[in-house]
Computed example of a mutant assay.
Amino acid sequence: MKAEHIAKRFGDVEVLRGVSLQVGRGDLVSIIGPSGCGKSTFLRCLNCLEIPDHGSITAMGVRIERAGGRWTRADDHAAHRLRSHVGMVFQSFNLFAHLSVLDNIVLAPRVVKGEPAQIAREQAMILLEKVGLADVARRYPATLSGGQQQRAAIARALAMRPEIMLYDEPTSALDPIVAEEVLAVMRTLDEEGMTQIVVTHDMRFAQQASDTVIYMDGGQIIESGPPDMLCVNPTDERTRRFLRTVL
């Protein structure tokens, strides 16, 4: 996945200022930085949940390029194709409360891809086994712990067979023990070769699991590098100051 010179403004506030990023196939990239620095907006731009004002995004052969102007129907079609390759997991789970865990996962393959019900359910059970939730497939989200709900959300995203997974603070609403259940699933996906981009405040995960850590501040990428470099010996004073507050 490649993003070039992504800019985004909300009214008078310039949230992203020409952010560029290239992620190799199978890499796990963690994006860290203070609250309000543009991390989540950038992640949402990568999936076209927020439409960049300027810049381009390329993923799995799909390219979206913006230079101002209107968002067209052709742009909509390109964004739809891009999203078919890119899964998204949110901080707030966003599971449908009136559906069982199994039905939450079956819904998108049935509606969006038109998969036969039996095949969709069989694949959903395989995914629930992968994330350790096969035994709660018939339960409703409200009866699950936060960690179980987030793992179900990951399984739901995987049901669309994405090549790239994006996570927006997937463990920030969870206590450390429960969060580890979710992080273990992400580590397993990394071992299987899934490309993953994670906005996170979990510095232990960023240090231990990432191929690359990116530090953002003020709507820009300040520096990036392997975790044993960026988290131990960053070159920019802003990065050093941030790390002193979180480590």
Rank of each mutant, 00 (worst) to 15 (best):
residue 196 Q to D: 10
residue 134 A to V: 12
residue 8 K to R: 04
residue 217 D to L: 11
residue 230 L to R: 01
residue 117 A to W: 13
residue 213 V to M: 08
residue 232 V to H: 11
residue 60 M to C: 13
residue 83 R to T: 03
residue 224 S to I: 08
residue 158 L to E: 04
residue 36 G to Y: 06
residue 82 L to Q: 02
residue 162 P to V: 08
residue 203 M to V: 07
residue 119 I to E: 12
residue 167 Y to L: 07
residue 45 C to T: 02
residue 164 I to P: 03
residue 96 F to Y: 15
residue 229 M to G: 01
residue 157 A to I: 10
residue 182 V to A: 04
residue 92 S to A: 14
residue 150 Q to T: 03
residue 142 A to H: 15
residue 95 L to S: 01
residue 45 C to E: 04
residue 143 T to H: 15
residue 90 F to V: 03
residue 71 W to V: 00
residue 45 C to A: 09
residue 82 L to M: 12
residue 74 A to C: 05
residue 101 V to R: 03
residue 237 E to T: 11
residue 171 T to E: 14
residue 235 T to P: 01
residue 108 A to D: 07
residue 90 F to S: 02
residue 39 K to A: 02
residue 241 R to H: 13
residue 70 R to V: 10
residue 120 A to Q: 07
residue 2 K to C: 05
residue 103 D to Q: 15
residue 191 E to D: 14
residue 180 E to A: 12
residue 105 I to R: 00
residue 219 G to Y: 08
residue 213 V to W: 05
residue 89 V to M: 10
residue 91 Q to T: 07
residue 117 A to E: 15
residue 116 P to G: 01
residue 92 S to K: 10
residue 87 G to I: 09
residue 221 I to V: 15
residue 37 C to I: 04
residue 131 V to E: 12
residue 105 I to D: 00
residue 43 L to V: 08
residue 95 L to I: 06
residue 227 P to N: 06
residue 72 T to L: 11
residue 88 M to E: 07
residue 168 D to V: 06
residue 222 I to T: 04
residue 123 Q to G: 01
residue 196 Q to M: 12
residue 79 A to M: 07
residue 109 P to Q: 10
residue 166 L to W: 12
residue 88 M to K: 00
residue 230 L to P: 03
residue 5 H to Y: 10
residue 149 Q to L: 05
residue 102 L to Y: 13
residue 242 F to A: 01
residue 43 L to K: 00
residue 102 L to I: 09
residue 84 S to K: 14
residue 138 R to D: 08
residue 222 I to Y: 04
residue 237 E to S: 08
residue 172 S to I: 06
residue 182 V to W: 13
